[in-house]
Design a protein around this nucleic acid. Sequence first.
DNA 1: TTTTTTATGATAAGCGCTTGACATAATCTT
DNA 2: AAGATTATGTCAAGCGCTTATCATAAAAAA
Lengths: 328, 328
Amino acid sequence: MVKLTDVAAKAGCSVTTVSRVINNYGYISQKTRKKVHEAMKELNYQPNSVARSLQGKKTKLIGLIFPDVSNPFFGELVSKIEDQLFKHGYKTILCNAGNDKEKERTYLQMLMANQVDGIIAGAHNLGIEEYQRTGLPIVSFDRKLSDNIPIVSADNFKGGSLATQELYNHGARHIYFVGNPTLDGHPTQKRLLGYKETIKELKLTEHIHPVIFNETLALKEMAIRDLLENHKVDGIVASDDLTALLILNISHDLGIHIPKDLKIIGFDGSKVVRDFEPRLSTIVQPIRSIAQLLVKLLEKRIDNPTEELDNYTYYLPVELLKRESSGN
Amino acid sequence: MVKLTDVAAKAGCSVTTVSRVINNYGYISQKTRKKVHEAMKELNYQPNSVARSLQGKKTKLIGLIFPDVSNPFFGELVSKIEDQLFKHGYKTILCNAGNDKEKERTYLQMLMANQVDGIIAGAHNLGIEEYQRTGLPIVSFDRKLSDNIPIVSADNFKGGSLATQELYNHGARHIYFVGNPTLDGHPTQKRLLGYKETIKELKLTEHIHPVIFNETLALKEMAIRDLLENHKVDGIVASDDLTALLILNISHDLGIHIPKDLKIIGFDGSKVVRDFEPRLSTIVQPIRSIAQLLVKLLEKRIDNPTEELDNYTYYLPVELLKRESSGN
DNA sequence: TTTTTTATGATAAGCGCTTGACATAATCTT
DNA sequence: AAGATTATGTCAAGCGCTTATCATAAAAAA
């Protein structure tokens, strides 16, 4: 392994000088600076970040705690975050927490032990305290952890409302909300609230049909089949796109015509779903902006941990993508 | 920050003893071991892995270099790999390389600087040498890097063959291969070879219709539209599921009935696609097994870098999932 | 009791790098 | 030419932990 002393030898100067070049302090002539850089290049030298970190330097490691990148929405979000972090010089430690409390907890410990500079939290298994206890800079996606942890989120309430209104505009009068009904703090709840509010404004009756997010596919299908076969429904606000797709498929099996008999609108609008299911109307979350803001806020916290932010809650605007499934 | 000396103080023993407990060497009585563990728990102590790594201990960090987790297949694969790594006590550094040579190169440097224990390489931008030069244990997914780097892959050739045969069995005689035609070393090429071989056996004419993987959606759509409108085709082997979905959608737009007028079969079989597009026939890669094998091989390399493996090429069996789109 | 074995402590070196203190050149000012 | 400025070097301490060495004490075996 090439080390500082090797570079110094090659460049014909002292380690101090090399260190000065690398860390950019003290007096250095252009000539030596160049010589050192050349030596580093020739030897393909990379300062050992482990050693640097031990001096209290930043590790430039960020922990990303999210449910699961195999979900297209989280996949895209994580991808965008990773890209932002990379541009800011950070490396991403990927922590898929699933719905596994224990795994999330272990990861938290690991991240601390690895001296990460900060955490972006998007999983929802653990309580606030466990995150607080890390003492690390944290920003949260879509869920309030505590008063002093910034939270970034799409405007889920508005999304729920927009979706409901869109279905109404296209003639639906028996509009169901299909998805997770009761997870408190969970983002889908705000979507539900938006739905409820709008239903009330429209003087309709609210109908909530629970389809639990991390149930098996078969159980979800049963729940949806039950809805479509045994209830009078002509419009559905789905809590997320995957649920919406399921409804689309089952409707097709049952011979229910979309959008004539039933109008559907999803939520999330990941690129994959938008591109490959072009019939589905959906509420699109601004994934790129979310990623940018998360990283920007986190970096701010890292660079200045004590500074109070002027705002701890950010709702980014959603967009209604009108397609065939909602009657367009 | 809690450190070793704090634990020693709390437990009423020397740092040496604490270190003996942590690293499990030398003589230690059950009583002291317990006392130390209690002290660690009480203080919520985590050995600083940065400091440990500096002694030459393993970092337990693995770099994962893949194109992009927002692609459902890679999302699922990365998710499964992450899970395997976690179970083996490793942390995952996520490196989305996209098709960006420079980013991949930078990541490689970063991984070296961070003293990762090994790399799982699934991106295809860089040449062998740059990987070799890291001097790190590496395993590769789906692409040969060099003779002494193990490669794990689904049996793409067999998959291409199975798909072609399936279309034939259901009556297709004008069977096209749609996707990347020429990327050498790229996995889709073996799929193409499987297709070609089988076409020859069946005494049909081969037709290759290029749709470049990282083109824009619009260009891909144009290419497909051209195929469907201007060519006599009744069967398509798609190089991957997303391309297959595109073909499905465009066929629908053009009023081409699937599977009556045209039979399609995709490739990859990620869970998302299987669950949410249940009409699509596809060649399913054994993602979980791939992940397990990759991690197993990598760990072997890490624990014993010099040992020669008895095999450097692993083709895992694919499975044909028969659905409606291929005529079932 | 004597010898072995087991348990713990004190001390120090070192992993690769940073940084401060101090010293000495080389170059620039006026 | 004298002082100021800039450039480089030497040396040493320290980040938190591991590990080897040596010493000593307690428990177990002979």
